[in-house]
Design a protein around this nucleic acid. Structure first.
Length: 258
DNA sequence: CGGCGTGTTCAGAA
DNA sequence: CTTCTGAACACGCC
C-alpha cells in the first residue's frame, strides 16, 4: 500500500492521537522490523517521553522525540501501516507504543522495511540523504530539471533518490493522466509536456492525500488495473499490461502511445 | 509447487 | 558515470 498519500495518512494518525502524549510503554513483538536498533534501546529511549510533531519526506515518516536528540524513523515497505487502536492486537502488529488512552501500532506483514532510531540530527540527515525532493513539495522548475535524463519515465519517477514519495500505482496513474508512455525517455519531453506532467502529479497527489490512499475509483486507472482485460476509463481501449523498470506497469496504448 | 506483489538494495552487465 | 536487469528480503494469496 504505502506510497506518499498513505504515509501522509500515517503522519496524521501520529499527529492527531499520539504526538505530545506521554509514552507509557514500548513493546517489540517482532524484532524483525527493527533496523539498527534493539527493542531495549527503543524502549529505554522512548518510555516516559513524547513524540514531537512528525514530518514526512517521500515515504519516510520522521518522528522526533521531545527533549531528546534521537528521532524515530519509519518506513512502511509494501505492507506496513501505523494505527491508533484500543482493541485486540492483530497478528502482524510488530511494535506497540502505548499511551494512557490507546496504542500506536506499527503493523507490517512482510517486514520488508521497519523502524530505525537516528541517534542525532547528523545521523538523521545521513539516513535521508539518498532521498530526492518530496513529490508534493518539489517546485516546477526543480521538477523539470529532474526530467533531464535519458531514463524512462516510469523508473525515473519511482526512483526515490530522484523524487521522494511516488510508487508504482501513483506513477502509472500520473502518466496515464498526462498521456505519456511509461517507456518514454524523460529527456524527450519538451517544456510543455514536462509542465503538464508536473500538474497531473500535483492533481493526483492532492486527491490521493485527501483520501489518505490511492483511490481505487473506476475513473482512475488504478481502479482497472487488476482486471486482466480492463479498459481505459477515458477512451475505452483495452489497457496494456507490461513491465517498465522491472515493475508491473499498466497503460493505455491509445492515450499513451509509445 | 510456481508465480506474483502499491518497496528497497545490491551485484553485475551494457 | 548512467542505465538496466535480476535476485534477495518476507509473507500471503492465487
Amino acid at each position: 500500500m504505502p506510497e506518499l498519500p498513505d504515509v501522509e495518512g500515517f503522519r496524521r494518525v501520529l499527529t492527531r492521537h499520539a504526538a505530545g502524549k506521554r509514552i507509557t510503554e514500548v513493546t517489540t513483538l517482532d524484532a524483525g522490523v527493527l533496523r539498527g536498533v534493539t527493542g531495549r534501546r527503543l524502549r529505554d529511549t522512548l518510555t516516559g517521553r513524547r513524540f514531537g510533531e512528525p514530518r514526512r519526506l517521500g515515504k519516510w515518516l520522521i518522528a522526533p522525540v521531545v527533549d531528546r536528540p534521537e528521532t524515530v524513523v519509519l518506513h512502511f515497505g509494501m505492507t506496513g501501516s501505523l494505527r491508533w487502536e484500543t482493541g485486540d492486537r492483530e497478528r502482524h502488529d510488530r511494535v506497540i507504543f502505548a499511551f494512557d488512552d490507546g496504542e500506536l501500532r506499527y503493523r507490517d506483514m512482510r517486514k520488508l522495511q521497519g523502524l530505525r532510531l537516528a541517534a542525532d540530527d547528523a545521523e538523521l540527515d545521513r539516513l535521508l540523504a539518498d532521498t530526492g525532493p518530496d513529490a508534493l513539495a518539489v517546485g516546477q522548475d526543480r521538477f523539470r530539471e529532474l526530467l533531464g535524463r535519458r531514463r524512462q519515465l516510469k523508473p525515473l519517477l519511482t526512483d526515490q533518490s530522484v523524487l521522494g514519495g511516488l510508487g508504482n500505482l501513483l506513477v502509472d496513474e500520473i502518466l496515464w493522466r498526462a498521456r505519456l508512455n511509461p517507456h518514454t525517455p524523460a529527456a524527450d519531453l519538451d517544456r510543455a509536456a514536462a509542465d503538464a506532467l508536473y500538474r497531473e502529479m500535483r492533481a493526483v497527489l492532492r486527491a490521493a492525500v485527501q483520501a489518505e490512499r490511492v483511490p481505487p475509483r473506476k475513473s482512475w486507472l488504478t481502479g482497472r488495473r487488476d482486471e486482466p482485460s480492463g479498459s481505459c476509463p477515458r477512451c475505452g481501449a483495452t489497457l496494456e499490461h507490461g513491465r517498465a523498470g522491472g515493475r508491473g506497469t499498466v497503460w493505455c496504448p491509445r492515450c499513451q502511445p509509445g
